[in-house]
Design a binder for these strands. Structure first.
Length: 584
RNA sequence: GGGCGUGUAGCACAGCUGGAUAAUGCAUCGGCCUCCUAAGCCGAAGAUCGCGGGUUCGAAUCCUGCCGCGCCCGCCA
């Protein structure tokens, strides 16, 4: 509706200048109407009352009377001090049918580096980690849809304690010992027994249990501590051993993510910045800063209280032994990232808020910009927080398998005529899409409790609902293709010949681009998800009210609108990582 | 204790850069398959917007106090 606004704005502006209120920020005041029956754009006239010395209702009335007719405007009405504009259906249809691809994407594309997921490679991907990956990948997709040039990057934590624990366990424990330690827990799901992430996490979990054991914990701690120490000083043998330990796990995790349609262009290892000297150079630079401080044992910190940080203001970036900390490496990483891209977006769990603030303030201290960060609240289970260490998790592999199975049950029931291979293909698309949508439709800062019954809903308000509208459009498309008829130009009928069911569809099609722009600029994919449901819903009303094929005759105008909607539904589904099936 | 976030119908959730009758889905109740796929459509009922104060012509939205929940406050990652 931004295009509608560009037509309406000058019409009002001229009248306001005449009335003597031309200086007010009209563009900001003219906003989308809240209810569909109010129109498309509304101008509250309360703000003019004081300046003009008249009641809002009187101002709205006189504006309504003075606005000249315009092809884009169906009606201007004054209601309760509001001036409501309704877009003309024929104008919407005509401008939508003319719009080219270039007009849909941004005219100022950015180069954006989006870092997301970056989960420690110590075990299978679980639902608790999924919000990051799904949020991040959706941001990647929406940015691309908007015309931005995007790199999706996974920052591999290849030198921390978690990897050290994994490497230690793989070197020191036998499979038999591991299973003996874990006998209280559920065994590995046989279906995933071949996947290294599921195999190796057992070693990790066993080690975590041993680390609690009074008899051996000291010696283990010492062994792991020396591994961590060596990795932080860039010991290549240790780093190689770490990589040998985690790479198969990471590969397993990526296999899971790929099933959800999530892929990365680049993997950057944390240790890179230690071995190439960036971290050492960074620490030297930080030492020269005005806010630098040193503790008794030789550890270094910055006093970020001087830069507005509240609470604990000392930010330690160097240990007493001279080694770096995770945040220090993260700063080096960010300086490197700024050389790759002119916009940085990070997707982080809310537990990283303080850390991100420290990194951001330090980057500013170094005359770099801070990245844009999208924080999300954790996904918990009804029983509580998920944890790989404790083993109370829902693995993504299990969830996707279950989703597919449930979807297959539905398909078999609804479409008994389908062949089994089609059932599986459709069920896979429906299952993975439903899982993604269930998570992406909720705004990230909201706490999220994972429930099987929510994740596996295929009704209105879910991914399959939107996918279903798309298949309806596809089947019309196929039906029309089969009829085969001479190509003729589409003529848009006058507004009063356009049924109500089509109006809501035209409106939804008109607002899609505005919503995409907002979702991308504000990093809020759920807005776009919400809109896709609206679009699908509007398509269903159109489908009901506007029969396209009647025997051998095709209503060309309806068909053109249906085709546009089909393309836009497909675009919306793809943008959210949902699979646009032809039939389901 | 301090910082950040969150609290909206039975459940889940949108709206939060102030504006009209607080949107949507599930669940509940009723209607629609000789008709382009009913994973759909139409309708009904359901909300002291956590509680108290304040600012404003106008507050779910802004400020403030309290209460509940989450995360953080490591020379861990």
């Amino acid at each position: 509706m931004d295009r509608f606004k560009t037509h309406v704005l000058p019409l009002i502006q001229d009248q306001l200048i005449e009335l003597g209120a031309g200086h007010l920020p009209l563009s900001r005041m003219l906003t989308a109407s809240r209810e569909a029956d109010q129109g498309d754009l509304s101008l509250p006239c309360f703000g003019f009352a004081k300046v003009l010395g008249q009641s809002p209702a009187a101002i709205a009335d006189s504006l309504a009377a003075a606005i000249p007719p315009h092809e884009a405007v169906a009606s201007v009405r004054a209601v309760n001090g509001y001036l409501n504009f309704t877009a003309a259906a024929d104008w919407m249809a005509a401008s939508l049918l003319q719009q080219s691809q270039e007009q849909f994407t941004t005219d100022q594309p950015r180069t954006v580096l989006i870092e997301h997921t970056s989960a420690n490679p110590n075990g299978p991907f679980h639902v608790g980690r999924a919000r990051n990956a799904i949020l991040g990948d959706t941001l990647v997709r929406l940015n691309r849809l908007w015309g931005n040039n995007v790199t999706a990057e996974y920052y591999v934590d290849d030198m921390g304690k978690q990897v050290a624990v994994l490497a230690w366990a793989l070197a020191e424990l036998t499979p038999e010992r591991v299973e003996a330690i874990l006998e209280e827990r559920e065994p590995v799901n046989a279906q995933w027994a071949h996947k290294a992430d599921h195999q190796r996490v057992r070693f990790y979990q066993a080690a975590q249990i041993l680390r609690q054991d009074e008899e051996v914990k000291n010696s283990i701690e010492e062994a792991i501590g020396s591994l961590v120490h060596a990795s932080e000083h860039g010991d290549e043998n240790v780093l190689d051993a770490f990589q040998a330990a985690y790479q198969p796990v990471l590969d397993g995790m990526l296999e899971t993510l790929a099933r959800l349609g999530i892929n990365f262009e680049r993997f950057t290892k944390e240790s890179t910045f230690v071995t190439n000297g960036d971290v050492a150079e960074l620490m030297e630079t930080l030492q020269g800063l005005e806010i630098h401080g040193e503790a008794e044992n030789g550890a270094h910190f910055l006093d970020l209280g001087a830069r507005g940080l509240k609470g604990k203001t000392e930010f330690f970036y160097r240990r007493g032994d001279g080694s770096s900390l995770y945040a220090t490496r993260d700063i080096a990483y960010h300086r490197w990232k700024w050389q790759q891209s002119n916009a940085l977006v990070n997707v982080l769990g809310e537990d990283h808020k303080l850390q991100a603030k420290q990194v951001g303030l330090t980057l500013e201290e170094l005359n770099e910009r801070r990245p844009e960060v999208v924080f999300y609240s954790f996904i918990k289970l009804p029983e509580g927080k998920m944890s790989t260490r404790r083993g109370n998790v829902v693995f993504m592999d299990d969830l996707l398998e279950e989703a597919q199975a449930q979807a297959a049950t539905v398909v078999r029931e609804l479409r008994p005529e389908y062949h089994e291979e089609d059932v599986i293909r459709i069920a896979e698309a429906v299952g993975t899409s439903a899982v993604r949508f269930n998570i992406i439709k909720v705004s990230p800062e909201k706490g999220f409790t994972f429930r099987w019954e929510d994740a596996l809903t295929f009704e209105a308000g879910s991914a399959p609902f939107a996918m279903y509208s798309h298949t309806r459009a596809c089947s019309i498309s196929a039906k029309v293709a089969k009829i085969g008829r001479p190509q003729q130009p589409v003529t848009v009928p006058s507004s009063d010949e356009i049924p109500e069911g089509m109006r809501s569809l035209l409106r939804a099609l008109c607002t899609q681009r505005d919503v995409l722009a907002k979702a991308v600029e504000e990093h809020r994919p759920h807005l776009f998800a919400e809109h896709l449901l609206q679009l699908a819903n509007a398509y269903n009303a159109f489908y009901r009210d506007c029969p396209i094929v009647d025997g051998d005759t095709v209503n060309e105008f309806y068909f053109a609108v249906s085709e546009l909607a089909r393309e836009r539904l497909q675009l919306g589904l793809t943008g959210l990582g949902l699979e646009p099936l032809q039939n389901m």
